[in-house]
Structures are given as structure tokens and as C-alpha cells.
Amino acid sequence: MKVLIPKSKPAKGAVGKTGLWRTSKPVVNHNKCIKCVICWAFCPETTILRFEDNSVDIDYEYCKGCGVCANECPVNAIEMVED
């Protein structure tokens, strides 16, 4: 019998569209954002999009709405709003 080993390769959305889990979503206030990328470093789902100028945005397809980014942002530039 062929052995089924539960291994997985790195891939986007390996467990599906985690964005569906969300009840509230993070919204970045770009006027307040100081481009420190702390949110990008802390997001457990790597769904903060980081651009070349270190500005950030959210990948809502996979963001699960945990609020870690809003909690970590040093200047409160991320607000959790009902989805």
C-alpha cells in the first residue's frame, strides 16, 4: 500500500481561502502609516502585502481577521472594522 505522508509544499492558501473565516477586517490608514512594516512581520498568515516603498496593504482573500496587525502597529494606523 502506498504510504500517504501528510507533507505539504509551500503554496499560497494551502488550506483554502482563509479570508472566509473573517468577521472583522483590518483597514490601513495610509495617512497615519509610517512604513515600519511591523504589521508585515507579525501577521501570522503573511497576508500583509509589502510594497517596494515599504507601504503596506491587506490581502483580503487570505486575511483571517485576527487583528494581530492592528494590535502591533505602533501608530494605530490599522483599524479593525466589521466585515
Binding site: K2, P6, K7, P10
Partner: peptide, 28 residues
């Protein structure tokens, strides 16, 4: 050793699956 981690071809063990696949792992 098909289970052995390998930096040339990275993979991980025991990631989440949906309920439609778990039974098959147990059956195996």
C-alpha cells in the same frame, strides 16, 4: 525516506487539511 525534510525541495509535515481528506490519511 520519502518523509525526510530536504532543503533542496522544501516541504513541511502535518499542515492542515480539510475534512474531506483526513479520513483518507487515517485509512492509510
Amino acid at each position: 525516506k520519502p518523509y525526510a525534510l530536504n532543503t533542496e525541495d522544501p516541504f513541511t509535515h502535518g499542515n492542515a487539511v480539510h475534512s474531506n481528506l483526513y479520513l483518507e490519511f487515517r485509512h492509510n
